[in-house]
Amino acid sequence: MAKKNVTVSLEGAVKTDAGLTYKGVIMEPVVDQCEGCDRVVTFEDNTYCPTYAQPSIKWSKGVCNFATHARAEVDKTGKVKVNPLKASKRAARGR
């Protein structure tokens, strides 16, 4: 399936003292990690993400899942997290 190139604009957005208001949500400017993302839109000399209002929160725990320019890295150590309850049952059975 081919990807569609969709252009997103912030039509109807209003600049207020609190920030940019778009569809009833106050949007914050993008952070440095968002540079290069296809979703970033420029509005009055600032760049915003129309997908997520607070981009700094999306990047605080790792890679943003909406980012088109970055991918989350897979853990290569090979360790698998096991449920502690299941681990204790396996230990009791002798496995």
Score class of each variant (00 low, 15 high):
M1K: 14
A2Q: 14
A2I: 08
K3M: 08
K4E: 08
N5T: 12
L10K: 04
L10P: 03
L10R: 10
A13F: 00
A13Q: 06
V14L: 06
K15S: 09
T16S: 09
D17F: 03
A18R: 15
G19I: 12
L20T: 09
T21M: 14
Y22F: 12
K23C: 13
G24W: 07
G24K: 13
G24Y: 06
G24N: 11
I26E: 11
I26M: 05
M27A: 10
M27F: 12
E28I: 01
P29W: 00
G36I: 05
G36T: 07
C37K: 02
C37V: 01
D38K: 07
V40L: 13
E44H: 13
T51F: 04
Y52G: 04
Q54H: 10
S56I: 01
S56M: 02
K58Q: 10
S60W: 00
S60Y: 04
K61A: 07
G62D: 09
G62K: 07
G62Q: 08
F66V: 02
A67S: 14
A67C: 10
A67M: 02
T68P: 10
E73A: 12
E73Y: 03
D75K: 04
K76D: 14
T77M: 01
T77K: 02
G78H: 06
V80E: 08
K81I: 10
K81S: 11
N83Q: 09
L85Y: 05
K86S: 07
A87H: 09
A87S: 10
K89Q: 15
R90V: 05
R90Y: 03
A91R: 12
A92V: 04
R93A: 15
G94Y: 01
